[in-house]
Design a binder for these strands. Structure first.
Lengths: 202, 202, 202, 202
DNA sequence: CATGAATGAGACTTCATTCAT
DNA sequence: CATGAATGAAGTCTCATTCAT
C-alpha cells in the first residue's frame, strides 16, 4: 500500500521484462533465447534483468507461470459459473481458446514446455506440471459429475479430460499456424461439437 | 550396386548412431543433448559422428526422420488396407498408438519437436513439417471420402483430422507419463470410441 | 577552519565506512569484497561510498593506511620512549603485538596485502610499501645504534630488522588462528626472548 | 606403464599449463589472473585448460600443491638426513631458502595464499593448510627432541617452529624484493645464525 | 576410417561505477 | 547530500566442430 514509487517502477520493469521474455522465448525457445536478446527487446541492459530475476530459468518460469496462473484462474472461474455440464465443458474449451488466442506468445512457450517436460522429466518442472495436472483435474471432476447425472455417457473421465485438453490445444495450434480459416467462435463451436457429440448421451 | 562391405558397415554405424541419438535426444532434448554423450552411448568417438552426419542438427533430423517415415508408411499402409471409413479411422489411431508404444524415445523427440517447431518457426524444420502435414492429409482424405459417403457427419475434415491426430498424441502422452492404467488395446478402443461417437452419423 | 557541521558529518561517515570496509575486507579479501557488502555493513547506500572515496581501491588504501599510520606512529613513539636498545626492541615487538591484537581485522587485511604486494608488484602499492619499509627502517636504526654501542652482536641490521618484523607477524598469526594458548604478554615475552637470545643453548 | 603416447602428452600439457599458471598467478594473484591469460602464456586455447582441469580453482590448487608437496618432501628428507639438532634446523632453513630461490613464482603464489587464507578462512583451503601445518610439525618435533637432549634451550617448541618458519619466509621475501645483497648461502647462514643465537650479545 | 585433443565463439552471470531523483 | 536502479565490461565455463595422427 505504501511505497508506491518503488513498487510501481518495479512492477513496470517486471512486466516489461516478462513481456520481452515472453516474446523472445516464444520466438527462440528457452535454450536458444539469450539474455542479451531479452534485454535488447526489453530495452534494458543485461545486468538489469538480474536486478529483477536471479537467472534465465527464473525469468522463464515467471513468464510461464504468470500466464499459467491467469489462465487457470479464468478457466476455474468460467467453468464454475456455467450451470450445466454441457455449458461447463463449453466454457472450458472456450476459455482456453480465447485466452490462447489473445496470448499467442504464451501459448508457444507453454506448448514448447509441454514437449520439454517429456524429455528432461524429473527436473524442476514440478510447478509447471502441477498447474497442468490441476487444470485437467478441474475438467475431470466436471465430467465425473456429469457421468453420475447421466448428462454424458459413462466414460473414463480422467482420460477424457486429458483428451479434451489436448483437443483445445490442437485447435489453438491450427489457428496459430494459420491452418484454420474459421473465426475464433466457429473454432470454439467446432471443438465443443466434436467433443460433445463424442461424449454426449446417445 | 552391392559393395556390401562398405555399405554394411556404414549402415550399421548409422543405425547405431541414430539409436544412441534417439535415446539421448529423448532424455535430454535437442539443446541439452551433447555430441559427446551421443558418441558415448553409441560407443564411438565424437569425431566419428561427423563422418556420418555433418552436424548435430542433421543427426537430429535423421533420428527423427527415420522413425517418422516408418510411422508414416505404416499408417498409410494400415489405413489403405482397411475397408470402411470406420476401420480406416480405427487403423489410423491404432497404428499410431502401437508405434509410439514401441518407440517411446522417438515419441519424446517427436512431441518435443512439435513444441520446438512452434517457436523457431521458419527454420529448417520444413522436412519435419511436411511429414507431419502429410500424415494429417492422409486422414483428411479418409474423412472427406467418408463425408461424401455419409459414413460420418458433414464436418470440417481438415480440422477434424488435426484433432484426431492430437487425440492419439494425448493418449500416448498419458501412457508415457504413467497416467493410464488401461491396456494398450483398451486405450486404442477408448480413443476410437471417443472420436467416432463424435464424428459418427447420429 | 571550523565549519563543524559538514566536517563532523564527513568524518563520521568516513570512519563508519572505513570500519565497515575493514571488516568486509578482512573477511573476504580485497577482490571478493563487494561495494554492496561494504555499503550494507556501513549502513549506507552504495552510491554514498563514492561520495567519500573515488573507488573501491581507495577505500581499501584508506582502511589500510589509517591503521598503518596509527601503528607506525605508536611504534615510533614507543620505541623512542624506550631507553636501552633492549627495551627499544622489546617495545617494537610489544607495540606491534598489542596493536594487532586489538585490530585483528586490520591485521588480516594487512597481512593479506603483504602477500598481494608480492604479486602485482609495480602496481599502485607504493604508499603501502613505503609505510612498510619505514617501519623496518625505524628498527634498523635502533639496531645499527645498538651494534655501535655493542649492545647487540655485530649483525646485518637491515636483514635482522626485517626478520624481527616477520617474527612479530608470526606470533600474531598464531594467535589469530587460535594456535597460541599463551597470554598476550607471554607471547610478547616469548617473541622478545627468542629474538634476543636465539634458540641455541647458552 | 602402457599408454605412453597419451600419458606423455597429458603429462606434457599438464606441466605446460601448470607452469603457465604458476607464472600468471605469481604475477597477478588468483583473482586478477584470467583463464585467457593462462591459456595465452601456456600457448593453448582457453577450452584446452578445461580438458585438464575442471576449474580455475583447480588449476590454482594444482599449481600450488605440486610444488608444496615437492617442498615438503625435500624438507622432510633433508631434515631427516641431518644428524644433530643444529644441523636439522640448519637443513630446514637451507632447504626452504634454496627451494624458494629456485621457484620464485611458486613462492609468490604460496605467500599470497598464506595471506588469503587468513581472510576467507573456513573455505576449501584445508588441503593447503594441512600441508602448511605439517611442515611446522616436522620442525616442532625436531625442536622437542632437541629440548629433551638439551641441545637447545627449554622453549615453546610449537611457537618456535612457527617463528622459524616465518623467519625463512622473511629472508626469501627480502631476496625476492631485491632487498638482500648477500648470496644465498650467506642468507642461509644469517638466518640460521639469527635463529640459533638470537641477536643478544653473548 | 576412426579417434579424441584442441579450438574458440558465445552463453550466463557479477559487480564497480554512474547518475537521475 | 544520499540513494539505489541501471549499466556494460569482463570473467568463467561449455560444447559443436575440426584435424593431425
Amino acid at each position: 500500500m505504501p511505497r508506491t514509487k518503488k513498487d510501481v517502477v518495479t512492477e513496470f520493469r517486471t512486466a516489461e521484462i516478462l513481456q520481452a521474455a515472453c516474446r523472445v522465448f516464444a520466438e527462440q525457445g528457452f535454450e536458444q533465447a539469450t539474455m542479451a536478446e531479452i534485454a535488447r527487446v526489453a530495452g534494458v541492459a543485461k545486468g538489469t534483468l538480474y536486478l529483477y530475476y536471479p537467472s534465465k530459468q527464473d525469468i522463464y518460469w515467471a513468464a510461464l507461470g504468470r500466464s499459467l496462473l491467469e489462465l487457470a484462474a479464468a478457466t476455474r472461474s468460467q467453468v464454475e459459473s456455467a450451470a450445466t455440464a454441457e455449458q461447463k465443458v463449453h466454457a472450458f474449451i472456450a476459455t482456453k481458446l480465447r485466452y490462447f488466442e489473445e496470448h499467442r506468445d504464451f501459448f508457444r512457450i507453454y506448448y514448447s514446455e509441454v514437449g520439454r517436460a517429456l524429455c528432461r522429466h524429473g527436473q524442476a518442472a514440478r510447478q509447471f506440471d502441477d498447474l497442468y495436472l490441476e487444470q485437467v483435474k478441474v475438467l475431470d471432476q466436471v465430467l465425473q459429475h456429469a457421468v453420475r447425472r447421466k448428462a454424458i455417457r459413462p466414460i473414463r473421465t480422467d482420460a477424457t479430460a486429458f483428451a479434451l485438453f489436448d483437443l483445445t490445444r490442437s485447435l489453438v495450434t491450427q489457428r496459430l499456424r494459420g491452418l484454420s480459416r474459421a473465426s475464433l467462435d466457429e473454432d470454439i463451436e467446432f471443438a465443443f461439437d466434436l467433443a460433445w457429440k463424442g461424449i454426449g448421451h446417445r
